[in-house]
């Protein structure tokens, strides 16, 4: 077992297999934004607090800033670019538009992906479930009312769709 100065990693990003050789200090956030050009994932606090860099790692919401790309080797990553299918917005994205779930938009990719993780886990969340879960991602524009309404609408849209 030799220490490595670069790492060959392979992961699936939005369904597409990606092979890259990266320095081990590369974070998943840097890999996604800079190496793969998926700039929908936003960088802000770099400390796991704000949630702007949220991606789904094997379905679970994580902060891509607090994870080395090498730690995600072999995993499936979903970024905001992976939600819309065939040019049609995902029902969660549509709900955020319909219910004014964003203003400046910087937190929105993270909010939408966190909503996806919540609704995959709890398809019919209570208001309290939503507040507890979404409370971890920070929005400094909306006052959260529009976001909560968007999540509730998305839950309804997805449950009637199934």
């Amino acid at each position: 077992m030799r220490p490595a100065k670069t790492m060959k990693i392979e992961l699936k990003v939005n369904g597409k297999r990606e092979r890259r050789e990266v320095p081990p200090s590369r974070t998943l956030l840097e890999l996604v934004r800079e190496d793969l050009g998926l700039t929908g994932t936003k960088a802000y606090c770099h400390s796991g607090i704000c949630g702007a860099c949220t991606v789904l790692l094997d379905g679970a919401a994580v902060s891509s800033c607090s994870l080395l790309a090498a730690q995600a080797d072999g995993a499936e990553v979903t970024t905001i670019e992976g939600l819309a299918a065939d040019g049609a917005l995902h029902p969660i994205q549509q709900a955020f538009i319909d219910h004014f779930g964003f203003q400046c938009g910087y937190c929105t990719p993270g909010m939408v992906l966190l909503t996806k993780a919540l609704l995959d886990e709890v398809p019919e969340p209570t208001r309290e479930d939503i507040v507890r879960y979404m409370g971890g991602n920070i929005c400094r524009c909306t006052g959260y009312a529009g976001i909560l309404a968007s999540v509730e609408a998305a839950a309804k849209a997805l449950s009637t769709k199934d």
């Binding site: 796991g48 607090i49 949630g51 949220t54 790692l57 679970a60 919401a61 994580v62 902060s63 607090s66 994870l67 966190l114 993780a117 879960y133 409370g135 971890g136 991602n137």
Partner: peptide
């Protein structure tokens, strides 16, 4: 603990 993203990891 912290938030759900942190708790997941």
């Amino acid at each position: 603990v912290a938030n759900v993203r942190v708790r997941n990891r």
